[in-house]
Structures are given as structure tokens and as C-alpha cells.
Design a protein around this nucleic acid. Structure first.
Lengths: 226, 226
DNA sequence: CGCCTTTGTGAACACAACGTGAACCGGGCC
DNA sequence: GGCCCGGTTCACGTTGTGTTCACAAAGGCG
């Protein structure tokens, strides 16, 4: 199993002891920068962030993780009972939390449940829609069994679209989400990539990407239910 | 919000007090059978199951819920620290748990986070009126199940009207609210779009848009009562 | 009943949005 | 340096769609 990211560095001794006794691999990190440079080849298996005296640093790290610079899941917080208020309006920054001081078995149970949840949902790193399959680990794509030879940008764009089937995205949204947050350039760039994607998908599947005039593009068919 | 299913009946007084103070609607249920018969029309908003002295009954209820007989999500457990072992190998039976005795704010925070998680994922933004459904994410519309092929302006106009059913809008109001604030153009443009909308809605549903002579247009039936 | 106002209808027009092909440019590599 | 590859930009066609206009139909009022 991939090691856990633990903040701060050094972590509280009782946390370190519990992780060691439980047989978890883990690495302490002080901030986002050290976290990035210490990232294992296989990525992180999860994160435990202690919201202590310098809660700003802890929340900043959570935010960096959730922003996607540092993809770590799941994320568990450890915080004192007097800091429960700080959870307000920060739902998106954590998956679970545990009050400190903690019952060792509670923390163990929470970790186990988090990993169970993570493993249950997304076992293989695949994105599938109809005949299309994207393998996120190997950067390969295939349609109806036939492999697609996509460039980097084409792959990223198709991945993003296929991860949100049915939803319409404006060119601006695509530029910011696929290309990057501070992208400056013509919106028509998106058109060209869409065209190449459609061409590579083949005439038969080109209609997987629909253009919504005056709005943007949509991947896949409509979603009426949940 | 739909009421919470709470087990056992009666629940511990401190739990009842917290739910009441927090403004939650809730119903106590003793077992699966009473839970089924007490199910509200809109279903349950979630469940809080106390794993107490008769833990068998509690786990049985959880199993019934997860089996699908009684679709309730999310499911939060409340259990004493000496019962942490019982969580083992039962990951699929709960979404979160809280140790008893509990810090009121911890339980509140867990409830809030659970609801946030449940609501964040599956919220297809829809506008509905009678047989008409507009999906705001996919820019698609359907009437009586049949998809409508609307242009951008037609869609925007219909969306605006359907979002305020029964209300009458002058052409000027529609021009400013749908087309844009500083629109300069003939008011008859609205008529043409209304006509095309009626045509696409089909003869059967064309009367969804009523013209109010000398005033403007109204979507849906007039509202005399509530 | 006749006039005037308001709305429905059909068609024509103009333009914006999109698709398409090709050129440009910058980085990595031999 | 020359080459290749991939991303971006530009110019041009094409199609769709919003707008306008002229006329017909309908409704209100004296």
C-alpha cells in the first residue's frame, strides 16, 4: 500500500505510534512544497492532517491537495474539540475527521472505513462510456476495442469530457479546467482539438461529442435521471 | 428536508434534544417493520442508528436499510467506545459513526458533512413543470418524455418562463431578462420566438404558453390560489 | 357592424457561430 | 542545424439562427 502523507512534521507522537503499530507506511511533510517533492512514485495512499496550533498551514495544505496539485485521497483530519467550528464551510476540504485526543481504535476504525470506501468506489483507474475506454494509468484510450492514438492534449480533453458525461462545457471552462487556470489564448483552440478528437474517434463515434450552439460542447448523451 | 429515521424508539434524550435544537425533522422507529410503515411520502432524509445494548436489533436494521428494502442515505451510527470492535467487517453498513457519549458539535458536524457529501454528488439541476423538463446542465429539454430540439434563444426563453410559472411578462421584460439588459430591437422578436416554441412544444402542449392580450405572455396555468 | 389595436404567420435577410484546411511556432531529439 | 511532432493561430466556407418585415387574422370598443 502507498504511504500516507502526514502533516505536520514531526507529527504528534501518539499518532506516529499508532500508525507504526498499525503497520501503516507514512511520511511526515511540513508544507505543500515538501509534500510535492516527497511524493512517492506510486503517489500517496491517503493523508492525515493535524489541525493544530498553526491551523492556517493545515488548511492551506488541504486546499492544495483538493485543488488537484497534489492528488491525495482520502483525507482525514485530526483536530481538538475546541476547533470544531473550523470545520464550518470547509466540507470540501476533508473526507472524515477525528477528535483529538483520540481513542486509538476510533482512529483505526476511521482509517479502515475510509480506505474501504475509497477502494470500493474506484478500483480500476478507468473511465468508460459506451464503447470508449480510457486507462488513466497507462494514458491509453480505445474505442470499440480499437486503440486510439491520442496526443497529450487530446487525451486530457477527452478524459475531462468523459468524466462528466452529458454536461455541457463552455470553451472558457474547458480552457481553464483542461489547459490550466491562467490560460490566455484563443477559445477557438478548443474547436480544433474537438475536431481532431472527432476525427480520431471515427465517423461512427464522432457524435459522442456534440456541439451545443452558442454554449459549448457536450460528451455523450443526455442524463435525465440521477 | 425529509425527516431522519432514528433508532431506537425512544432514542436517548440527549440525541433527541440535539436533533430538536438543530431543527431536524425526525421520527423514532423501533424496528424494520415500523420503519417501513412510518416511511414518509418523500422518503427518509437519512438515518441515525444507535448501537446500544441490543446491538443485534441495530445491526439488523442497518442491514435491512442497505439491502435496499428501505432506501435511506446517509446512515450514521452512534455507539459507545467499548463497541468499536463491532464496526469490524461491517464497513458496508454505515457511512459514518460517532462515539457516545458525544460532543454535540461533533455530531452536528458529522451530520452536516454527511448531508453535504450526499447532496454534492447527485444534483442534476432540473426545471420541471407538468410534462416539461429542462436539464440546465446538459442544455436539453423534453416534453412528455420526448426530447425537444431547441435553439439557444428558444431554450433560454423557455427556461426563463418555466422558472416563473404562472407569471405574466411583458415583451420588454422578456427582452431585458432573457436577451440582455441593454437590448435594442423590436419587441416583435419575442412573438416569433414564442411562436416557434409553441410549434416545437406540439399542438398538445402549445397552450402551456398563453398570451395575455395587451400585456405579454404567461407560462403555465394562472394561479388563483396558492 | 366597422375601425383600430394587437397578435399570429410565412418568408427573407444578415450575421454570428462553427467546421475545415493549412500555416506558424516552439521544443525536443538525433 | 535540420527534422519531426504537437499545439496554436489564422483565413475562409458553410450552416444555422436570430431578427425584421409585410400581411393576415383575431379581439376589443364605440
Amino acid at each position: 500500500m502507498e504511504p500516507l502523507l502526514v502533516h505536520p512534521d514531526p507529527p504528534p507522537p501518539e499518532l506516529a505510534r499508532l500508525l507504526d503499530l498499525g503497520g501503516y507506511a507514512w511520511k511526515p511533510v511540513a508544507d505543500e512544497r515538501t509534500a510535492v517533492s516527497a511524493t512517492p512514485d506510486d503517489g500517496w495512499g491517503g493523508a492525515i492532517v493535524v489541525v493544530g496550533d498553526q491551523s492556517d498551514a493545515a488548511w492551506g495544505l488541504c486546499r492544495a491537495i483538493r485543488k488537484g496539485d497534489l492528488p491525495v485521497e482520502p483525507l482525514l483530519l485530526l483536530l481538538g474539540g475546541n476547533r470544531l467550528d473550523e470545520l464550518d464551510l470547509r466540507d470540501e476540504l476533508y473526507d472524515d475527521f477525528c477528535l483529538d485526543p483520540f481513542h486509538p481504535r476510533e482512529l483505526e476504525a476511521r482509517l479502515r472505513h475510509l480506505f474501504w470506501r475509497a477502494g470500493a468506489g474506484t478500483a480500476p483507474e478507468l473511465v468508460e462510456y459506451a464503447d470508449l475506454v480510457l486507462n488513466l494509468e497507462t494514458y491509453q484510450a480505445a474505442i470499440a476495442g480499437a486503440p486510439l492514438d491520442l496526443t497529450y492534449m487530446e487525451y486530457e480533453l477527452l478524459k475531462f469530457l468523459a468524466q462528466h458525461p452529458g454536461k455541457v462545457f463552455t470553451r472558457e471552462t474547458l480552457l481553464s479546467r483542461v489547459w490550466g487556470y491562467e490560460y490566455y489564448g484563443g477559445a477557438r483552440t478548443v474547436d480544433v482539438h474537438i475536431r481532431r478528437l472527432r476525427a480520431k474517434l471515427g465517423e461512427e463515434h464522432a457524435n459522442l461529442i456534440a456541439t451545443v450552439r452558442s454554449v459549448g460542447y457536450r460528451f455523450g448523451q443526455s442524463r435525465w435521471g440521477t
